[in-house]
């Protein structure tokens, strides 16, 4: 009904945090390298650097899910935009769906992102260790 609004809200919050973190980095922090999906700044935590992945997944998924809701006639281009809001019983069902399905969606996306960050950190550390050991020999 409107489950996509929960990941959308999370996307907005994470984007705001990411933007704030990007602006906070002082000019002396080091060289800034902007590549495809990652803005890497020396001295910056890898988790903050990889927040782009989370926002991309949240915004992308929410956009496509919003389209699905339009397809099913659950979102309308006129106020109050959500057709379920016209009837109190439908509205209650919608809020229940948001608190169950919507929250699970947001949590699962965040868990998937967390796993990706953990795995990529491990790969990065392993390759660094390999480079160090090859430099020593």
């Amino acid at each position: 009904m409107a489950c996509f609004l929960v990941p959308t809200a999370e996307a907005a919050v994470v984007t705001a945090i990411r933007k704030a973190k990007e602006h906070k980095v002082p000019s002396s922090a080091g060289e800034v390298k902007a590549s495809e999906n990652v803005v890497s700044i020396e001295g910056e935590s890898p988790v903050v650097r990889k927040l782009h992945w989370l926002t991309n997944m949240l915004w992308g998924g929410s956009a496509l899910l919003a389209f699905e809701h339009i397809w099913h006639g659950e979102v309308a281009p006129w106020f109050p935009f959500l057709t379920a809001m016209n009837d109190p019983a439908d509205a209650a069902e919608m809020f229940h769906e948001m608190s169950t399905v919507g929250v699970t969606m947001a949590v699962l996306i965040t868990v998937v992102w967390g796993c990706m960050v953990a795995v990529t950190n491990m790969i990065e550390k392993r390759s660094e260790a390999q480079e160090e050991s090859s430099a020593e020999t």
Binding site: N56, G60, G61, L65
Partner: peptide, 23 residues
Amino acid sequence: MKVGTLCWLYWGASVMWLVDALF
């Protein structure tokens, strides 16, 4: 070609629809 953007879009939607399917 910025195909990475497309990956995030589709994987994000897939995870969300997976939750929908489970419910």
